[in-house]
Write a protein that binds this DNA or RNA. Structure first.
Lengths: 333, 333
DNA sequence: TTTGGTTGCTTAAAGGTTTAACCATACCTT
DNA sequence: AAGGTATGGTTAAACCTTTAAGCAACCAAA
């Protein structure tokens, strides 16, 4: 008992398949199908429990109503929240989401994207990884694309991201205002814009509020635990000590918290800490973390909106959005 | 400049499309295409940068090389980890994953599943929600299906889950052995097997180790925060106090931790606590939580393996797996 | 009585594959 | 010379839609 097709309906209603297609797509008026025939068609469809073949439609129309999502790691709470927001918004608008995790690996990212292209997704939402710039530039020529979180600032490339500069600036400002002077910043060793902008925000704020003191640590994605250890040990080797640390992402923050926990560093007495993105762990660290909160749902939703606009072909203007962070103040500062 | 098709290759190589198809699918020997023609075909394909149309192939073959994944909430770390494991294993085997979050809502779950069916996924991995039993039974007749986490114990339904009874039993046993007597259990108000089995494990262990004391709390999915409050307040109203609490899921545990934090209950002195599933929050609660750890990656991987076996049609036997939990002992007990 | 316009349909192509069935040639056997 | 069998292909149908184009019948107006 195979799936009924439009042909089965046509037979049962005694009409041609064209009429069936017109009626089932609600174009009976426009295409002048008689009321009588239309009713027979609808009834036959209902009786047979007809469901259109999405695949056949895609083949014919060249559009799959599917969007691809590639993030570094879907099990990271930041991207999990993002994925949820994106899938929800896409579903609401009749789109389906295919996803994959790139593991911060450009080859894997390209492989995933290739799979998405092979499947003819109508558009892609991507959080790029290191060394992917030319790939993205090429990709952007081929189909609608919106970057999230990380991005490339280049004409014609759409993205929805945080105002990273502002975020880091705000963190430092907050610390400076409570009297911290020796403030360090821990980010990733990368040229990706989101991180470099956070560095820049940190530096500018330090110049503005703290007479230019500056101490930064760089961690490799692939050696997170190892490098966090080295960096923080390095900071502590400094005889003058440190007043505060700002971390650049939620993963870095969590890694830092493990360190503080292990070394029994008292927060905020010995050291003030500001986290990034948000994470349940921040809530349960013995001194709940002050952190820079991203509007994750808004980013996801806007990314979908922009992508679908590009797909629909109207409004081809470029969208480069920097949404505003919010400082959530708690007891680690 | 549209996508090249098999026809373009055929023209360029001066052969028919059938030959092209045979060669590109590596069936040149079997289908007796000459070495000469085969080479011309491969070269033409390379020159044109040919990529097969996944859609056309799906239409013709009736198989999409796609699996659907429906979980209650992909932004929950448990399901995020699961989704990652599933996508990885599927990708390794040439399959793509479409996903959606059902929000513990059976209508939404059915809508998502319908979308997956409309897209002709080859199989579905599903974590069911309340009131979905008949839906699942029907679904199981229609295509390969593997349930994860939650399940229905019924002939012919495949699932990969935790040995829930054992998990809860083990938790209680651990507490009893350290001398706790008045042990309570907090689960969801549901008839879903995974939770009822955890209740049963708790009760049996209590009967075996603690002369039958029993105190359980039931929380509604839709009223989590509210009900956790009520339940825990209720427990504390008991004049004799409580020695320990076991929580049935990571979400419940985290909600409980917020409560303990707010009420400044000292763990483990005043109360011992055992969490479930695992979560970063468990690590940073001031008294790192002892918990029942699920082999999430293994569950995800096995689910994919079983699903693909069913899809491939070989090995149609039923798989109902209960993987073993592991007790991670730390300072909350 | 022609022309023109509606109305209500149908026909057939197209989208890109896979694959069963056929065909033509060459060569080998008896 | 007839029959058999490799070899190296090709043709065409099928999967299920959408949609441009065509057709037949009727009515109205000129």
């Amino acid at each position: 008992m195979k799936k009924p097709s439009i042909t089965d309906i046509a037979k049962r209603a005694g009409v041609s398949i064209a009429s069936v297609s017109y009626v089932l797509n609600g174009r009976e008026k426009e295409k002048r199908v008689g009321e009588d025939a239309a009713n027979r068609i609808r009834q036959a469809a209902a009786e047979l429990n007809y469901r259109p073949s999405h695949i056949a439609r895609s083949l014919r129309q060249g559009s799959t109503m599917t969007i691809g999502l590639v993030v570094p790691d879907i099990s990271n709470s930041y991207f999990g929240d993002m994925a949820k927001a994106i899938e929800e918004e896409a579903f609401r608008r009749g789109y389906t989401v295919i996803f994959g995790s790139s593991d911060e690996n450009p080859e894997k990212s390209e492989r995933l994207v290739q799979t998405l292209l092979d499947r003819q997704v109508d558009g892609i939402i991507l959080a790029p990884v290191e060394e992917e710039e030319t790939h993205i530039t090429d990709l952007n020529e081929r189909l609608p694309l919106v970057l999230i979180d990380r991005f490339i600032k280049k004409a014609g490339i759409n993205y929805v991201a945080l105002d990273n500069h502002q975020a880091a600036y705000q963190a430092v400002e907050h610390l400076a205002k409570r009297g911290d002077e020796r403030i360090a910043f821990v980010g990733y060793l990368t040229e990706m814009n989101h991180i470099t902008e956070r560095y820049r925000g940190y530096k500018e704020a330090m110049a503005a509020f703290n007479a230019g003191f500056s101490l930064t640590g760089q961690v490799r994605y692939s050696r997170l635990d190892e490098d966090i250890e080295t960096v923080l040990d390095g900071f502590y080797a400094d005889p003058d000590g440190l007043d505060a640390i700002v971390f650049a992402t939620n993963t870095l923050t969590v890694a830092g918290l493990y360190y503080f926990q292990r070394k029994q560093i008292r927060i905020p007495e010995e050291l003030a800490v500001i986290g990034f993105d948000g994470n349940v762990a921040f809530d349960f660290f013995y001194s709940p973390l002050t952190y820079i909160k991203q509007p994750i749902q808004a980013i996801g939703k806007r990314a979908v909106e922009i992508l679908l606009q590009q797909i629909d072909g109207k409004n081809q203007q470029q969208h480069q959005l920097h949404l505003l962070p919010e400082l959530i103040e708690r007891s680690s500062t």
